[in-house]
Simulated scan of single mutants.
Amino acid sequence: MAITAIYRSALAAAGLGLLAAACADNREAVELPEPATGHAVSVETLVDGLEHPWGLAFLPGGDMLVTERTGQLRLIRDGALVEAPVSGVPEVLALSQGGLFDVVLAPDFEETREVYLSFASGTARSNNTALYRARYEDGALLDGEVIWTSQMDKTGGAHFGGRIAFMGDGTLLLTLGDGFEFREEAQNLANHFGAIVRLNRDGSPASGNPLAGEDGALADIWTYGHRNVQGIAIDPETGVVWAHEHGPRGGDELNIIEGGHNYGWPIVTSGLDYSGARISPFAEHGDEYTAPVREWLPNSIAPSGLAIYRGGAFPNWNGDMLIGALAGQALHRVVIADGEAVAEEKLLADEGLRIRDVRIGLDGLVYVLTDHANGALLRLSPAD
C-alpha cells in the first residue's frame, strides 16, 4: 500500500473513533493462568536515592551505569552510589515524561568504550528523541556527540519511546513514540512518530531496512504503527526481537518485531481513549497489521522495561519475558511457548512500586529500577 493511502486510512480510522460516542467499558479481561513452575524470590535493595531512574547498564568488572530521567548518569561502584554524577552527559529536556532515557554499551565496549544514551532534546514547544554516543572512561563521557535526532518536532512532554537494543549484525534499534497528541502520524512513514528505527553505530540508516524503498519513507524506519514503545529486547538464543508498547485505557501490547511490519496504531487497537470513547472501531488486526502476542485488557499495566530471561539462577524462567509495570506496580513474568503467551505471574505485586526497567545481570540475577523520586535498584535472587 502506498504511504499516502496508509496515512489517509489512519486519518479515516481516527475520524471514526472521534465520531464514536463515549461508551461503557465492556471489554473482557484478558487473563492468563499462573505458570505451572516458578521460583521463590528474594528481593534486596542495592541502592536507593536515585531520582526517577530509567535505564541500567552493566560495566565489565561489576560497576553499573544508571540514568536518571532528570538528566544525570550515575555510577554504582562496589554496591554504592557514587556521589558525583558521570560528566559529559548531553543537555536533556526534563519535561513530564521527557528526560534522559536509556543507556546501552556497544557490543565491543571493552575495546571501544562506547556508550549510547537516548534522551529528549529541544524545548516544550519543539522537541525530539535523540541518540548520543560517547566514550566512557572512569566516571566521564568523553568525545560525546549527538549522532541522530528524530524527525518529529513535537510539542509537549509525552511519548518519546527511548529504548535501545543492539542487533546481532551490529546495528541498533531505537524505539520512539507517537507524541501523544500526534497519534495519526504513527502511520506516516515520512516522519518518525510511532516508529522503531534501525541505525548504524554512527546514526546513519542501516542498509537493508525494508521500507527504505517506499516513496517518501524515511530510510531508517524499521517498523511503524506503534503508540509508545518503552521496552525492547533481543533474545540472545533465537535472535527474535520483542517489544511492548503502552496502550491508552487498556490495549498495552507485547509484540514480536519484524522489519517492515505495521503494528496498527491508531487504526487497530483494543484500547479506549481517556474519555472512554473508542479510538477506532477496529480491534482485529487482519492481514495488513501485525497482531500482538499479548494484550492487557481492560486496564493498562503501563509496561516499561523488558528483558528475556536467559541464565542459570532461575532455570524455570528460561525464555520468559520479564516486563516492568508502572501503573500495574509489578514485575510481570510472561511465559512464551511457540510464539504465544501462555501464562503470566506478577512478582513484587505487594510492594507498591512503579517498575521502570528490568535487566538480567552478568550473574544471571534480575535487576529492577523503581520509578520514584527516591527510586531504587533492586536485585532479585532465588530464595532457596
Score class of each variant (00 low, 15 high):
residue 4 T to K: 15
residue 4 T to V: 15
residue 14 A to K: 13
residue 17 G to T: 09
residue 24 A to N: 11
residue 26 N to L: 04
residue 34 E to M: 05
residue 39 H to Y: 00
residue 40 A to T: 04
residue 41 V to L: 02
residue 43 V to G: 09
residue 46 L to P: 09
residue 47 V to D: 09
residue 49 G to R: 15
residue 50 L to I: 07
residue 51 E to C: 10
residue 58 F to L: 15
residue 59 L to I: 15
residue 64 M to K: 15
residue 64 M to Y: 14
residue 72 Q to S: 14
residue 74 R to F: 05
residue 76 I to K: 15
residue 77 R to E: 14
residue 79 G to R: 15
residue 80 A to T: 14
residue 81 L to K: 15
residue 84 A to Y: 08
residue 86 V to A: 14
residue 86 V to N: 12
residue 88 G to A: 10
residue 88 G to I: 06
residue 89 V to Q: 13
residue 90 P to R: 05
residue 91 E to T: 11
residue 95 L to C: 04
residue 95 L to Q: 10
residue 98 G to V: 01
residue 100 L to I: 10
residue 102 D to I: 00
residue 103 V to L: 11
residue 103 V to Y: 03
residue 103 V to I: 13
residue 104 V to M: 09
residue 104 V to Y: 00
residue 110 E to S: 10
residue 113 R to F: 01
residue 115 V to T: 05
residue 119 F to S: 06
residue 121 S to I: 02
residue 123 T to E: 03
residue 126 S to A: 08
residue 127 N to W: 00
residue 133 R to F: 00
residue 134 A to I: 02
residue 136 Y to E: 13
residue 137 E to T: 12
residue 142 L to S: 10
residue 143 D to A: 12
residue 147 I to N: 08
residue 147 I to K: 03
residue 148 W to I: 04
residue 153 D to R: 06
residue 156 G to R: 03
residue 156 G to V: 00
residue 157 G to N: 01
residue 159 H to K: 08
residue 162 G to L: 04
residue 170 G to W: 00
residue 171 T to M: 02
residue 173 L to D: 01
residue 177 G to Y: 00
residue 178 D to M: 04
residue 186 A to N: 11
residue 189 L to V: 04
residue 189 L to C: 10
residue 192 H to C: 00
residue 195 A to V: 03
residue 198 R to V: 05
residue 203 G to S: 08
residue 206 A to C: 08
residue 209 N to K: 08
residue 214 E to L: 08
residue 218 L to R: 14
residue 219 A to D: 10
residue 220 D to W: 00
residue 223 T to L: 03
residue 247 G to L: 13
residue 248 P to C: 11
residue 251 G to F: 08
residue 256 I to S: 09
residue 260 G to N: 07
residue 261 H to W: 03
residue 261 H to L: 11
residue 263 Y to R: 12
residue 275 S to N: 01
residue 276 G to P: 01
residue 277 A to I: 04
residue 279 I to S: 12
residue 280 S to T: 13
residue 283 A to T: 13
residue 290 T to L: 09
residue 292 P to Q: 07
residue 294 R to F: 02
residue 296 W to C: 11
residue 296 W to R: 14
residue 299 N to C: 12
residue 300 S to W: 08
residue 300 S to E: 14
residue 303 P to E: 10
residue 306 L to A: 05
residue 306 L to V: 08
residue 309 Y to E: 10
residue 311 G to L: 02
residue 319 G to W: 06
residue 319 G to D: 10
residue 321 M to W: 03
residue 324 G to D: 12
residue 328 G to Q: 14
residue 330 A to G: 01
residue 331 L to S: 01
residue 332 H to D: 09
residue 340 E to T: 15
residue 341 A to Y: 00
residue 343 A to P: 07
residue 345 E to H: 05
residue 346 K to C: 07
residue 347 L to G: 07
residue 348 L to Y: 06
residue 357 D to S: 10
residue 359 R to F: 03
residue 360 I to E: 00
residue 361 G to W: 06
residue 362 L to W: 12
residue 366 V to R: 01
residue 369 L to I: 14
residue 369 L to R: 09
residue 374 N to Y: 08
residue 375 G to W: 06
residue 377 L to T: 13
residue 378 L to K: 15
residue 382 P to A: 14
residue 382 P to Y: 09
